[in-house]
Design a binder for these strands. Structure first.
Length: 587
RNA sequence: UGGCCUGUGGUGCAACUGGCAGCACGUCUGACUCUGGAUCAGAAGGUUCCAGGUUCGAGUCCUGGCAGGCCAGCCA
């Protein structure tokens, strides 16, 4: 499977010029100027403190796609610098999800924590260069000294300690001589900078915590700003792509690397050695999708409070959720490509994602018949006990998909929605006295409507025209509708879970003052239907199998599914013109 | 009375770096159809945030506004 490059769908010579996004332009400019030779090396650097979501998928697609397009390399690197928030479970899920999305990091599955030793050495170097110092201010004092957005900060009273004292103190911090929070190592930059990140940022904090990979080897841990650029540098990353909120951090990212490089030389001669790699940080707008939330904090809350079935609930915007729902990696990648990448903070309509899913599944999902809300139909003139195996096309979009047999018998189920006793205008389906086609089978005409005491329609008595076997009338007469159906005798029972947007509001973060964002959860985001009837070919389908239920949508066998107890998730509905008409008529 | 970033049809992005504002999604028509699916053909929809300026010519350059985003964790 090829990764969609920028020229995909536009490959004929002389076609419109390739339209590059701003990051591709930077990469191509660099390739042209030889800034990195012919190297392009990107990375995806998640913190293992949650599951990947569609926003991460955008980032992975971007980063891996760039490496792929330009013959470069891509690393998967865990940014695991905070032992108290990170867990092995998340590491495993992230690896699985990134791989499923199609990214390939070869043997470069990396961990920022593996560089702790090197980072420590460089920190010592900055101390020796007089560019970092040990500060004894408390967290609260540090905050006060930092100043405000509009006013400068004050210098720490510990700012001018001697190099010797700083070296001694920092070494003892590392040895664990001091309690958590008692001291920090800070960069000596500028307490009056308009960029707060440059007001002597903390490089190391003391944390006597167990690290998921380093165990108890460390009791000082590097801060993101100090660590991240170094991780990129160590790995030889050329383009360090991140989201917009790190824009203000770029000057610091650059400052740290420049500070290390100060006094260093290209050939390594001199007291400090060889210059280190200085990647270019580039920021883009994170993905915001309508009708969902993306923050790890909120997703965690939904899981913990059991508003959903878990991180992989089909309603979640997580990669695992989308996978369970039946989305394909190809669809997600196509979506990422469709929305592009820019610096404008925009909100993408979730309908675009659904469009990509439909488009992909339309090409690859085999068609089957399944009745969600069964209505019994008895074909009065069809011989009792007779069963015919009729030919059905598996996928009209794929001639290699073949055909299958579908059993037809006297008693059937059709969809309740496909019958109206009193059909409104433009309703083409079955109604008293009306003739329709049963897909791949016969024309039937509704003769009698059977109701229970409460007046509910419980059964339809119909007749069929034997001459229309296979679905065509030899006399050329037409019907306005074709219905899906299932033989009552041969149907397989199934549970079907219908999914809709997780939130009713387009923007669930826009919640009225004093109200909880979770009040905006869509109470109908999941509808569980039992007693659904599907065609026998579906018996024993494995979890993850994807189908189109004709006229209804795409469905995926859920992981809860077992032999003898089929469970389907509705991935996405088919485009439904009738639903649109009906809605419009109502309005 | 802070700094940085960003404003282009309803939505998401383009516009070869100053030369007739395009593409996709969505919407609406129509054709075709054994899925009201798919497919095909077409249409509507723009004061390029605003106001000045430079220029033969500005979405693009300059100045000044306005609006939105991010930043005062020993989180990332």
């Amino acid at each position: 499977m090829t990764w969609p490059g920028p020229e995909a769908g536009n490959s004929d010579a002389g076609a419109a010029p390739r339209r590059l996004n701003f990051i591709e332009q930077i990469v191509e400019d660099d390739l042209r100027s030889g800034k990195w030779g012919d190297r392009v090396h990107t990375r995806f650097p998640p913190e293992p403190n949650g599951y990947l979501h569609i926003g991460h998928a955008k980032s992975i697609t971007l980063n891996y796609g760039l490496a792929e397009q330009y013959g470069g390399k891509f690393n998967l690197r865990f940014d695991d610098t905070n032992p108290v928030k990170e867990e092995e479970e998340y590491v495993q899920s992230i690896i699985a999800d990134a791989r499923w999305l199609g990214a390939d990091w070869e043997d470069r599955l990396l961990y920022g924590s593996d560089y702790f030793g090197q980072m420590y050495e460089w920190a010592l170097e900055l101390v020796r260069k007089g560019k970092a110092y040990v500060c004894d201010l408390t967290a609260e004092e540090t905050r006060q000294y930092r100043g405000t957005l509009t006013g400068p900060g004050r210098e720490s009273p510990y700012r001018n300690r001697s190099v010797e004292e700083n070296l001694d103190l920092f070494e003892r911090m590392r040895k664990g001589e001091f309690p958590d929070g008692s001291r920090t190592l800070r960069a000596k930059i500028d307490m009056a900078s308009a960029n707060l990140n440059l007001r002597d940022p903390v490089m190391y904090r003391i944390l006597h915590a167990h690290h998921h990979r380093q165990g108890d080897a460390w009791c000082i841990y590097p801060m993101y700003d100090w660590a991240h650029g170094l991780e990129d540098s160590i790995e030889g990353i050329t383009h360090s792509i991140c989201t917009l909120e790190f824009e203000n951090h770029r000057p610091l990212y650059d400052w740290f690397i420049d500070a290390i490089n100060e006094g260093r030389t290209e050939d390594g001669s001199g007291p400090w050695g060889r210059r280190i790699c200085h990647p270019q940080q580039i920021e883009f707008a994170r993905l915001i999708l309508t009708h969902t939330v993306m923050s790890k904090r909120k997703l965690l809350e939904l899981v913990r409070e059991r508003h959903v079935r878990g991180w992989d609930d089909p309603r979640m915007p997580t990669v695992s959720g989308m996978r369970r729902r039946g989305y394909t990696p190809e669809a997600i990648r196509a979506f990422a490509k469709m929305i592009g990448v820019a610096k404008f903070n925009s909100t993408v309509d979730v309908g675009k994602l659904e469009y990509c899913v439909r488009e992909d599944l339309n090409r690859r999902a085999n068609r089957v018949m399944g009745v969600l809300r069964p209505l019994k139909v008895v074909i009065e003139n069809y011989p009792e006990g007779q069963v015919e195996e009729l030919d059905a096309v598996n996928n009209p979009e794929d001639s290699t998909a073949g055909t299958r047999k579908v059993p037809f018998s006297r008693e059937l189920y059709i969809e309740q929605d496909d019958f109206r006793e009193d059909p409104p205008k433009k309703f083409f389906r079955l109604a008293p006295g009306r003739e329709v086609r049963l897909r791949y089978a016969y024309f039937i005409t509704c003769q009698t409507v059977v109701k229970d005491a409460a007046g509910n329609v419980t059964e339809l008595r119909c007749t069929y025209d034997p001459a229309t076997r296979g679905g065509d009338a030899p006399d050329g007469r037409k019907v306005k509708a074709t219905l899906h159906w299932v033989s009552a005798a041969r149907a397989v029972d199934a549970e079907v879970r219908l999914y809709d947007h997780l939130f009713t509001a387009e923007d669930p973060s826009d919640v009225p003052e004093g109200r909880d964002w979770k009040e905006l959860l869509n109470p109908e985001s999941e509808t569980v239907l039992t007693g659904c009837k599907v065609e026998p070919s579906l018996d024993g389908s494995a979890p993850g199998s994807r189908y189109q239920f004709e006229r209804q949508g795409y469905f995926c066998v859920d992981s809860d599914s077992q032999v003898g107890r089929l469970v389907f998730n509705r991935t996405v509905t088919l485009k439904d013109t009738w639903a649109k008409i009906e809605q419009r008529e109502k309005a």
